[in-house]
């Protein structure tokens, strides 16, 4: 099940606002992790870098392919989860928890409003649109 408090992109990143810090936490969905298969490499940005909405902020590689990670928000990367790069199994084991990838100080407080809700995302991955995207 997809946690209800997350928002999603069509490219399968999730995002949520961390209450304590007000930072946007970003990761990839369980579905994406499953589709990728054996993950062999994760490349993340450095803290302090800026990211732009829908621009690549990193790369995740499986045996067969490298895919880019697209930022669901514009802002400054404040924290990077090195644990993911060190323990790649985290991505499939705990995609919505321990496998968060970056925390971003978003430029816009309503940055996540344009993203899909958990329910919408669940419908999306089952839909033909996902296949067609």
């Amino acid at each position: 099940m997809v946690p209800k408090d997350l928002r999603f992109t069509k490219t399968h990143e999730w995002a949520k606002v961390e209450e304590t810090s007000n930072l946007v936490v970003v990761g990839i969905s369980d579905f994406a992790a499953g589709q990728l298969g054996d993950i062999v490499y994760v490349e993340l940005p450095e803290a302090g870098q800026t990211v732009a909405l829908e621009d690549a902020f990193g790369v995740i590689e499986s045996v067969k392919a490298a895919v880019e990670l697209y930022s669901p928000v514009s802002g400054e990367v404040v924290e990077v989860n090195q644990a993911v790069a060190d323990d790649l199994d985290l991505v499939s084991k705990d995609p919505y928890g321990g496998a968060w990838m970056i925390k971003v100080r978003a430029d816009d407080s309503g940055a996540l409003d344009g993203l899909m809700t958990a329910a919408d995302y669940e419908a999306y991955v089952k839909s033909a649109e996902c296949e067609q995207e």
Binding site: K10, H12, L36, A65, A66, V67, Q132
Partner: peptide, 19 residues
Amino acid sequence: MPAVGIFVCGRRRRSYNAV
């Protein structure tokens, strides 16, 4: 855009070996 991401729908793959 009719692109079936075989691994991940909607992801732009960076691998050059497919097509």
